[in-house]
Amino acid sequence: MKIGELAALTGVAPSRIRFYERIGLLKTVARQANGYRSYPPEALTMLKLIITAQQSGFSLEELSTLLPSDLEAWDHSSLLGALEQKVQDIEDLERRLAANKAQLLELLAEINAKPDDMDCRDNAKRVLSQLGLVREGE
């Protein structure tokens, strides 16, 4: 199949497909006598794998070491290790995001707890002092 067909089937721009080919992620490309690229059906599968993996948080560098040149030649232990590590990375990110969210919610609550007779400038000082970012009277 030609690059236009592959692009239409995957929703990936031809320039992006050529980029994946150039960096070695898409290896099953042949050139016809006229110089046009010819992609076998496996290229569609590989391209979908690349897209899905990127959406799951894998970098292109990670993919270059993980994806086999032949879909039949997966290194089972490397694949499992990479997937388990990515799950751990996501869980670590979730913990950091939850902590960041909790801090922001606490800050919002403090800002919203502004006494009615206090202006915003004094409220900002109050909140910052409670967070230990400034001392009273500064």
Rank of each mutant, 00 (worst) to 15 (best):
88 Q>N: 00
113 A>E: 12
124 A>L: 15
128 L>K: 08
92 D>Q: 10
98 A>H: 04
93 L>K: 11
83 L>V: 13
90 I>H: 09
100 N>V: 00
114 K>Q: 15
95 R>V: 09
101 K>R: 14
86 K>A: 05
113 A>R: 14
129 S>Q: 15
108 L>D: 11
102 A>M: 04
127 V>L: 04
131 L>Q: 11
128 L>H: 06
85 Q>M: 09
80 L>M: 06
119 D>V: 03
82 A>F: 10
102 A>L: 06
88 Q>I: 00
83 L>A: 14
83 L>Y: 12
118 M>H: 02
113 A>L: 05
110 E>Y: 10
115 P>H: 08
126 R>P: 08
132 G>N: 08
100 N>H: 11
82 A>Q: 09
91 E>S: 03
127 V>E: 02
93 L>M: 05
129 S>F: 00
94 E>W: 03
102 A>D: 07
107 L>E: 03
89 D>L: 10
125 K>H: 13
121 R>N: 05
96 R>N: 02
96 R>W: 01
109 A>Q: 14
86 K>C: 04
131 L>H: 10
97 L>G: 01
114 K>H: 03
112 N>W: 01
79 L>I: 03
97 L>P: 02
80 L>C: 02
116 D>M: 05
89 D>Y: 07
127 V>N: 01
85 Q>F: 05
122 D>R: 15
121 R>C: 06
110 E>I: 00
87 V>S: 08
124 A>D: 05
85 Q>K: 13
80 L>N: 02
81 G>Y: 07
122 D>T: 10
108 L>V: 14
95 R>L: 11
132 G>L: 06
99 A>K: 09
132 G>P: 05
93 L>W: 01
123 N>E: 13
100 N>F: 08
99 A>E: 11
83 L>E: 05
87 V>F: 01
101 K>Q: 13
100 N>K: 12
113 A>S: 15
80 L>P: 00
118 M>F: 01
124 A>G: 12
119 D>I: 02
129 S>D: 00
82 A>M: 11
103 Q>R: 11
121 R>H: 14
79 L>T: 07
131 L>E: 04
107 L>P: 03
104 L>C: 03
121 R>A: 12
119 D>H: 08
122 D>G: 04
132 G>H: 07
90 I>A: 10
84 E>R: 11
107 L>I: 12
85 Q>I: 03
131 L>N: 04
102 A>Y: 00
92 D>T: 07
82 A>K: 10
111 I>T: 09
130 Q>S: 07
97 L>R: 11
80 L>E: 06
109 A>I: 04
85 Q>R: 13
104 L>H: 05
80 L>Q: 07
98 A>Y: 01
83 L>M: 13
114 K>E: 04
105 L>Y: 08
86 K>T: 04
126 R>Y: 10
120 C>A: 15
99 A>C: 00
112 N>F: 03
100 N>T: 09
81 G>A: 15
105 L>S: 10
94 E>C: 01
114 K>P: 01
109 A>V: 10
119 D>N: 14
99 A>D: 09
121 R>S: 09
130 Q>C: 07
112 N>S: 08
93 L>D: 09
82 A>P: 08
108 L>I: 14
82 A>D: 06
95 R>N: 08
111 I>R: 01
115 P>C: 00
86 K>Q: 14
122 D>V: 01
95 R>Y: 05
80 L>S: 00
127 V>K: 07
122 D>S: 14
81 G>Q: 13
109 A>H: 14
122 D>N: 15
120 C>W: 15
114 K>G: 02
122 D>I: 06
